[in-house]
Simulated scan of single mutants.
Amino acid sequence: MTDSLHIHRLQKNYGPLRALDDVTFSVAPGEIFGFVGSNGAGKSTTMRIILGVLAADSGEVRLGADLIDLERRRRIGYMPEERGLYPKMKVGPQLTYLARLHGMSAAAAETSARTWTERLGVAARFDDDVADLSLGNQQRVQLAAALVHDPDVLVLDEPFSGLDPVAVDVMSDVLKDKAAQGVPILFSSHQLDLVERLCDRVGIISAGSITAQGSVDELRTRDGQILEIVGPHPDSRWADGLPGVLAADYASDATRLRVHDDVDDQAILAAALAHGPVHRFAANPPSLTDLFRELV
């Protein structure tokens, strides 16, 4: 079985700027870990340190009990945010070349290149220059480049960027299949609905520090729940000061209250009814997007 990927207390400074501050998390075999944060939060820096493209000022990256060295990094499938394909090289020969750099034989490399272009829907472009492909198809080829050498670990920086819904489904299925084979998968994305749907666990990074991590359910329930009430006019600000209410958002379509888990929801309903008829009263955990807005 593939080892877990461990990132332990990474620090990285650029002069007075601290890009990473004690970043620690792990990705277990067969786990899909979503790494989310605003632009400049430290996601790409962390991934580049995992790959050895950057050196950390302190901290460690391990596969299982062992520090990652050059030989073990060859077993990682990496998809950079800035796409790294040769634009004037044909798709198939390029993938074959990259697979051979990872130690595959010529025959095995070409077979793998054809398998992955077929799986990712770009087999018809096997003999075309990368520059002649659409951005979405270039993205598919870039993922094939991360997969072509049958890696033990996947580290993918914004793999869904620029993809249409069909391509998102194809890529999601590939990641789920690799996870089912025991591969640890770390990927970053700004598409939080996709992260929420696809990931086993999520880490949120802000200003170089991990501000929250856990399963999606753990994160969504860590700070209470959301009550959505349709009825009372928002200008009344009817929920201000009610016991157990942590925050109130008086939108035109509904009032959304963040409340403690043990709040007396019947008391809140009674307060709403005191300001007019209530057409909807529902309790929901916050979405990952709601949590992200609060933490970042």
Rank of each mutant, 00 (worst) to 15 (best):
L5E: 12
R9E: 15
K12R: 14
L17H: 14
D22G: 10
F33R: 02
G37W: 12
N39V: 12
N39M: 08
G40F: 01
G40V: 05
G42F: 02
K43Q: 00
L51F: 02
L51S: 03
L63C: 15
G64V: 09
D69H: 02
R74K: 15
R75K: 15
E81M: 02
R83T: 11
G84Y: 05
G84W: 01
M89S: 12
G92W: 05
P93I: 11
T96Y: 07
R100C: 08
R100V: 04
L101F: 10
M104F: 13
M104K: 11
S105T: 14
A108N: 11
R114D: 13
D129V: 01
D132R: 14
S134F: 08
L135E: 06
N137V: 03
Q138I: 11
Q138H: 12
Q138G: 14
Q138F: 13
Q139E: 05
V141D: 03
V141I: 13
A144Q: 10
V148D: 05
V153C: 12
F160Q: 01
S161N: 15
P165Y: 11
A167I: 04
V174Q: 07
D177F: 01
A180F: 05
S189P: 12
L194M: 07
R197V: 00
I205G: 02
S206Y: 09
G208D: 04
S209G: 02
A212D: 04
A212S: 04
Q213C: 02
D217G: 03
L219W: 05
L219N: 07
L219S: 00
V230E: 14
G231L: 06
G231I: 00
H233N: 10
H233G: 00
P234V: 00
D240C: 07
G241F: 03
L242R: 09
L246M: 13
A247D: 12
S252Q: 12
A254K: 14
A254M: 12
T255R: 09
H260S: 11
D264H: 08
Q266H: 07
A271G: 08
A274N: 12
G276A: 05
R280C: 03
N284D: 07
P285T: 10
P285W: 00
L288H: 07
T289C: 01
R293W: 06
R293M: 13
E294P: 03
V296M: 05
